[in-house]
Each structure stands twice: as C-alpha cells, then as structure tokens.
Design a protein around this nucleic acid. Sequence first.
DNA 1: TCTCAGATCGTCT
DNA 2: GACGATCTGAGAT
Length: 194
Amino acid sequence: MKSLSKEFFNRNTVKVAKDLLGKIIEYDNVSGMIVETEAYRGYPDEASHAAKRTPRSAIMFDTHGFFYVYFVYGNYFCLNMTCEDGRPGAVLVRALEPLTGIGAMAKRRGIRAGNKKELTQKQLVSLANGPGKLCQALGITKALNNTAVGDKMKVYGGGMKQFRITCATRVGIKKAVQLKWRFYIKDNLFVSGN
DNA sequence: TCTCAGATCGTCT
DNA sequence: GACGATCTGAGAT
C-alpha cells in the first residue's frame, strides 16, 4: 500500500487532521487506524509548540509531510505530522485502533492476556488510546523525528469513519482546559476553521 | 541552573 | 473522578 503523498499534508492543518481519521499507520510490523487527532497551527494557540520557533519545533515551520516526534514528561513520546507551507502546523495523533501486530503492541505496553489468553476489549482499547500509549505500542522513538512520512513509517488511506476530533487552535490546550472546553470538544465534533 | 511539561498510571475517596 | 508521583529533556534565564 502506497503512503500518503507529501502534498496531502500541504493543506490547512485542520483539514489534514480531519482527513487523517480512518487512515492506517504502519510501522515496525504493527499497524493501527487513526481514531483521534488534534491540529496545532501556531499563534494564537499558545500551548502549541508551533506558537514559537525553537530548534526543536523548527520542523513545524519549515516542512510538511514530516514526522515531528517529541519527548514529554520524561516518559513518553508524541507523534505529529507537519503540515502546510506558509505557517507552522502539525497534527498530533492522539489515538489508534490496533489492527495488526497486537501481540507485539501488548508486549511493548506491558499488557498481559488473562486466563483466556486473549486480550479483553478493555485491554485492546488501552493499547493505543493516548498519544504516549500509541508511541509505546508502535515502538516510536525520536529516531522517527524529522523523517518524511512514508520513509520509515507508512500512512495510507483507509475508509473514512466518523470519529472524534479535538482541535484547540483558537485558545490553546491550557486555556481550553481552564475554560472546560476540553470536555465540550471531546464529546462533540469541534473544528476551528481559523 | 532552574522550571516545567500537548501523558500515564496507581491510589484514594 | 480526583489527585499525586513519575523523572528526562527542552527552553528560559
């Protein structure tokens, strides 16, 4: 399966975030479907790495169609894909639905099947239902940072399904949480078109 | 040198 | 559901 073209990412970041839902990520013999994304488009989203150019975040200002992987809280990595020329932007992949290589994912995540030797539905969901979790499950590290989409990791088209999309491009995560918007945008389809 | 973080997990209520 | 501990590295000063 051919990976998404670089031009797919050279569009409005919010649109890319929306279109990434339902796409398949394949890396290191495991794969999963993207079920939650978050768009970051720089100022005025003050909580975004794209709000300010630093050596780390420069990739969001200079490229589209590249992976931006950063380390957070001393424990976890977060996977982003850079977007649109002309302004800083990236889409954070927040959750995956595991498809293949589930055993490998469970091993990496330290999740063990019970007596029935099969993961429960709850365990299956918890494999990659968070930005840090999915990186752990797929074995994503900074080695993927600054590589082109399709180079080491493939992202290709799956059927579009209706999934939750969160986007804090207007107010930033911190303010969104302060204003309790996070709740709202998690339970409803919320897309800022700015 | 210091602060704090786009998360996760375990514990407590 | 709320809250604290985790503990490395990027960015600020």
